[in-house]
Every structure is written in structure tokens, then in C-alpha cells.
Design a binder for these strands. Structure first.
Lengths: 217, 217
DNA sequence: TAGATTGTTAATCGATTAACAATC
DNA sequence: TAGATTGTTAATCGATTAACAATC
């Protein structure tokens, strides 16, 4: 099974390739060279060729890459060729907003359940899906073969909930809580730390201003 | 003004240090060594010391780092010691969810306005702030000295809106639209590409399953 | 003073870019 | 066949880790 380990940096770039190829496909572009793509994406052509060759030779000398083919192949690599049932755990503002994100469905991420710890929310429907209590979770996850959980609970509740999710067979947590979850081998965590992203923005803003103090008259 | 350029990797780690130090502070921990912090954060002590020394010598030999002092200093570096008025542009589900994120206010990010292009939304209040139309934006931004815009419009509208924002003095865009914005020098973009994050999760999930096919009986 | 721990230099590791032979 | 462009090796660049002298 020993596939050559692919670096995280490469993986993080794959969805962006996928997005650009999707746009080219919509524009009915049939083929593209690494050089042309590199100009669009503002990366080096060398990087594109290196990245893609981690997964196989998708191109053809003298021709470039077939857009449709490459798009499909990257989709497969990203696991977008199968349907992933998902649940949202935490039906607050963010949880509800994500529940309404129809984009995900297009990529095979199918929301099948929404859960919360707050009894007040029980039975309220979000995009046609009724919010359930955590007590119903174990049965529901098994019944629906759910592997992905979106965790949008506040941080104090998120840690315990992660344990419950893992106990009940969840294999991947998309974590929006401001904590680092500690999970066993075989359970993946992908963090979206919004406040950290905003702080990075803030740093860059302050930084730029400091560097250009002299510019002002 | 020529400060040594600090790498993006370091910047991305700063908010995480800030978060851990904040937690230590809450737990009334007075000092911590790079070694102890490294165990908590699961990074090397060497990296912590290297990272911090980009900004100055915050520690003391034989003692370690004073938690409160270091927390404050990193806060300053991140620009959290000043108030940043912000507007949300795009009052859909995600925009409204972010509007309700009180966490941000604690860090100095103050939501002052919400805008949308859809006339139906005009006047509706989200957390006490009435949604305004884009026509009111130029005056509002100047009046309130707004430098940060949260862009939560669909991608087809986001590009034009970014131009409008920049024309009206916005210096930083927190971009949730699935496009790469093209901005002039001096305007910062921080992307939150949710679908790309979810695809990364999907890749890792598929990958792990493939690598462990043999494990199943 | 002795022990602890930083700040910083040097060594290693990994990722990006450049170059070019292979080949469509 | 000639031109274009990939796949891939080699060179460069940057980031991480290790080591240790400086110093509290």
C-alpha cells in the first residue's frame, strides 16, 4: 500500500487547481499548458508540473493537459467521485449557515443530519432537516454511514463532543471550534479557525501601515 | 522602515501562540518555558524560540517567558491593541452568522455596518445593525473610517464588489467568496475558502482509507 | 554559584524553481 | 519532421531542527 507520501503543501494546492480547471471547463477550454495555467494562477509552471506528477502523468508532451480529463482526475484524487454523508453538530448561526451552503452538495458532500445539545432547538428544521438531540446521534450515524462531522459548537463543548463523535465511528471532523482536537490515528481533523484567519489579516494590515509610514505627507 | 521580512509560515503560527497563551493566562500560569509550551502545542521548542525571536527577545534565560507579557506583546504584533471597524458585505446566511460572532469584538474587531445588493434585505436588523444598500457604502466607509471588509457575496458578485470596496478606501478584505481577488498593492486579502478546506479533508479521508485497505478483514 | 533556559548560529531537511532530455 | 510542452533530474532557496554559548 506504500504510496510515496505527498506533502501537505501539495494537497492544499489541489483544490485550487480543481477550481481553476472547473472554470476553464465552464468556458469550454479544451486544453491548457502548464505555462498558460501558471499565468492564470500566478504560480510557476514548474510547480504545476511537479505537483501533478505526484499523482501521475496527466499531460502530453507538445499538447499540454486536457482540461476535462485533468479536472476529473483531480476530482477523483480529492475523493469527490463518491458521496459523503455529513452531519452538522452545533446548530447555531454558523452551523445553520453551513447547512444552507448548497455548493457542498454539488461536490458530493451530502448533509443528512443536524444535531445540537440545546433542547430548545429540537425539531426546528433547517433546509428541511430537523435538528436532533445528541442522544439520537449514535443510532443515526450508524444507520446513515456517516463519516464526516462538521463541528460548530463552542470550544468548551467541542472537545467532549469530538470524543462522542469518534466513539460513534466518525472518521473526519471539520472543526470550526477554537480548539485543537486530540484524535486517535485514523480520525482526521481539518480546522477552520476563523479568528486566527482574521488575526493574520490584522497583522498584515498593521504591518503594511507601519512599513509605509513615510509615504504619508 | 526596512524591517527584516518575516515569513508567512511564522505569521500563520502567531495566532495559535496567542490562543495558547490566552488559555495559560486564564489558568493563572505565570511563566512558561519554550520546552513546556512545545509539549502543549506539539511543535518543537526550537521553532517557538525561533519564531518569537523574529520579533524580539521576549524571554529570559533560566526563567522562560512571562505568559502575560508575551500574550500582550503578540497581541500588539497582531494589531489587536487597536479597534478595527469592519463591515460585512453580503448579508446571506454566512454574513449573518459572522455578524453574530461576538468573539471578534473581544479582539478589537468591531462590526459597524452590514451591506447587501438585494433590496429585499434593506432595513432588516442583524444583531442590532440594519442592512444597508451598496449605494450608502461610500459615505459610510469614509464616515466610519472602515478599513476591513468581510466579503460574503457569491463569487460572481464578489469580484466587482471588491473593486468598489477598494475604490472606497478599504485596505483589507476577508474574502469568503470562491475566487481569487486581484487587488492593488496596499490592499490585503485574506481568503477563507471553505470548499477547499472541505476538499482537503475529503482527500485525507480517502487517502487514509486507501492506505489501510489491508487492515480490514 | 549552579541550574535552567534563552537567543542564535550551524546543520539538516524539504519544497520550489530551473533546466533539459524525452516525446507527442 | 519541427515545434511545443511534458516529465523528471539537478540546483537553489527557505524553513525547521539541533546544538550550544550566553546569561539570568
Amino acid at each position: 500500500m506504500e504510496a510515496k507520501q505527498i506533502s501537505k503543501a501539495v494537497i492544499k494546492r489541489l483544490p485550487r487547481y480543481y477550481r481553476y480547471l472547473g472554470e476553464l471547463l465552464e468556458d469550454n477550454v479544451e486544453r491548457i499548458s502548464s505555462n498558460d495555467l501558471s499565468k492564470k494562477m500566478r504560480v510557476t509552471a514548474s510547480q504545476i508540473r511537479q505537483d501533478l506528477n505526484n499523482f501521475g502523468g496527466f499531460g502530453q508532451q507538445g499538447y499540454g493537459y486536457n482540461v476535462k480529463y485533468l479536472y476529473t482526475e483531480i476530482g477523483k484524487i480529492l475523493g469527490l467521485d463518491t458521496v459523503h454523508p455529513m452531519v452538522i453538530v452545533g446548530a447555531g448561526n454558523l452551523g445553520q449557515a453551513l447547512a444552507n451552503y448548497v455548493e457542498f452538495e454539488k461536490r458530493g458532500f451530502k448533509l443528512v443530519g443536524i444535531f445540537d445539545v440545546n433542547p430548545v432547538l429540537e425539531g426546528i428544521a433547517v433546509r428541511g432537516i430537523e435538528i436532533q438531540m445528541i442522544s439520537d446521534l449514535p443510532f443515526f450515524l450508524k444507520e446513515n454511514n456517516v463519516e464526516i462531522a462538521i463541528l460548530t459548537l463552542p470550544k468548551n463543548k467541542a472537545i467532549d463532543m469530538a470524543d462522542i463523535l469518534i466513539e460513534n465511528g466518525i472518521k473526519a471532523i471539520w472543526n470550526f471550534a477554537h480548539v485543537d482536537l486530540d484524535t486517535p490515528d485514523g480520525v482526521i481533523v481539518e480546522n477552520v479557525h476563523l479568528s486566527e484567519s482574521l488575526m493574520t489579516l490584522s497583522y498584515n494590515l498593521s504591518q503594511y501601515r507601519q512599513e509605509h509610514v513615510d509615504d504619508e505627507k
